[in-house]
Write a protein that binds this DNA or RNA. Structure first.
Lengths: 350, 350
DNA sequence: TGTGTTGTTACAAACGTTTGCAAAAACCTG
DNA sequence: CAGGTTTTTGCAAACGTTTGTAACAACACA
């Protein structure tokens, strides 16, 4: 009970001070690379450090007011490759800057999100990254008021002064639909994502805009509201193909739902793209690897994570003066094999 | 410069002591649920806490010797769904226990692994989880000697007293090969994983054992050494199919390489499973979603993460007396559509 | 030799908690 | 109401750092 958490050796600054025959403040200054240290002293200290295997206690450091070199990352869950890609970008940037990453998952429970935000802001982290945040309004003020550094990822900001990174969702969906229209499709279905997400709404809007711009009237019957998961892609495509006048092409709001649509098409004995063209969104790694390779809108996911991290770090380290703002990274159409001209189709409803 | 990191309000235990008209130690006791607190006092304190929005400073807590409620997780990278699944299991168990998760990625650089291990052990975390660790011998002693809690995941222990969780890799591969043999295959290729990984070696062994047990002689020409990535699955299958006597079936050491093999088969104008049967390993979510759905060996990845976390927590919290050991979770054959009897094949080499 | 620099080091306070010890308050019991 | 418990509270020390202040050492200059 006495030495409960002191089971393992605990070399402190004082131990190495004793070993090197100097005061502990000198040791601290050696560690922090102060000028005005006699080279000989410095060497004695570093020698003692390696000898005793000294590792700084981060908690003590942070307590006196220093940085913890930790950044908090708040995500819903690990269930999608989409998140994985973003996290990979974040992780790289974080590692480069020699920070550590603290992971918080809400498991999609709303309450946890705001709870986390306050405790992170007061707790271990120097800054906070949030992917696809939900109740932003709940804590945005708190955060701003406390001056706590944060950057939102894939949050569609309404004003320009909230630090956030996202992709050109509207434009991306516009391009997807326009691509199909260009191929000759006039009757295009749309499988939306979870509409509480800003990006889902933006993508739907892009689809609508493309239709209108090309003189095609929007039909709400051709829109199925999914939730970004594969099963809803299946359900959506299935519903769309059951219509009296089914579409000849389908835009899915993300790749995973596009894969679900693949299944639905296959389950009806139809083929992609000959019978139904399908376009996804995201360009997750699997998009290139499924059969047929998926035509999709590439979102620079890793890049988004990376940029957000860099923005956050510049805020934390105050390396930059101007206020951080809202950045949109460009999407890009990646034409693979899942969409073709409807004229090529062996039209199954004669 | 003065209040550099004190930009945001910082309510301490003393502030709420003043507010509630008690001493700060009383506040601390309220926070830590001590008995012997007058209910009325307790209430005054909790009221003050909510009023002032108190959040405990974890660093100070940890400094006096308490737990940080943080567990460290060391992985290579985020690049595979395999890792994602394990992390999901870990994350769930960690969240349940109300711990936080600190993430360290080595990006496959060996040096970083041991560096991390020492700094984590001395730093923020109460315990350490490592997925697919490499140079375990380098730091196993240090860890043990310091009595620092840790559990390895997907590390094949040679002795039983190292706390580790893995799956029955040998048996799994054995089952995969046996399944193909049972279907009638006699000429079976094997795409191995990165042989520095214990699991890769175990799987190869299982394949060999199944062959021998069924009176089939092992041919090293039928083994291709891959690296667990998709491209090596492609290369492996391609090499195998280029042999003078190509196999009628291929066992891949993980699902991702099996997908690569799919591509190789397809690129030669052949079909899975009619021309070539393919079996994977892991049963990552995509395995059920590719076409054809992949016959594979299910590893309980989430379960492994979960169990390892629970073991670690029981060590940290000393809720269990006996020494933690090596646990192997059972694998299971999941027969889908990518393997069939070779007699059904339209045999392409007449 | 005294004085002024400049480089180098030590001491002490502070960060926000937890916790051992002791004192105070409240409650019994006779 | 004195004496003894038991409950409740406060004080002070400690955890391992960083950093302001001050002192000391070395050196140059006059």
């Amino acid at each position: 009970m006495k030495n409960r958490s002191r089971k393992f050796s605990n070399v402190t600054i004082k131990d190495i001070a004793r070993e090197a025959g100097v005061s502990y403040s000198t040791v601290s200054r050696v560690i922090n690379n102060f000028e005005y240290i006699k080279p000989e002293t410095r060497e004695r200290v570093t020698d003692a450090m390696t000898e005793l295997g000294y590792v700084a206690n981060q908690h003590a450091r942070r307590l006196v007011g220093g940085r913890s070199q930790v950044i908090g990352l708040l995500i819903h869950a690990f269930d999608s490759p989409y998140i994985g890609q973003i996290v990979q970008g974040i992780d790289e940037a974080v590692a480069e800057a020699e920070y550590d990453l603290m992971l918080y998952t809400t498991h999609r429970r709303k309450t946890r999100e705001s709870t986390f935000v306050v405790s992170i802001a007061r707790g271990l982290a120097d800054g906070l990254l949030m992917v696809l945040p939900r109740d932003v309004d709940t804590y945005l003020d708190t955060l701003n008021q406390q001056g706590f550094p944060f950057v939102l990822i894939d949050y569609v900001a309404t004003s320009n002064d909230v630090p956030a990174v996202s992709a050109t969702n509207r434009q991306g969906a516009y391009d997807a639909a326009a691509h199909l229209i260009e191929l000759g499709h006039r009757h295009i279905g749309f499988i939306a994502g979870d509409m509480v997400a800003d990006s889902a709404r933006e993508r739907l809007q892009g689809y609508k805009d493309a239709l209108v711009d090309n003189g095609i009237s929007f039909e709400s019957a051709l829109v199925y509201e999914g939730d970004f998961f594969q099963s809803s892609g299946f359900a959506g495509a299935d519903a769309l193909l059951s219509l009296d006048a089914p579409p000849t092409a389908i835009c899915a709001s993300n790749d995973v739902m596009a894969f679900g649509a693949y299944e639905a098409v296959r389950s009806r004995g139809l083929r992609t793209p000959q019978d139904i063209s399908i376009v996804g969104f995201d360009d997750i790694p699997q998009a290139a690897q499924v059969h047929p390779p998926l035509t999709t809108i590439r979102q620079p996911l890793q890049e988004m994570g990376r940029l957000a991290t860099q923005m956050l770090l510049s805020w934390i380290e105050e390396t930059v003066e101007e206020q951080l703002g809202y950045v949109q990274l460009p999407t890009e159409l990646v034409a693979r094999d899942s969409a073709c001209s409807p004229t090529e189709s062996v039209f199954y409803r004669s």
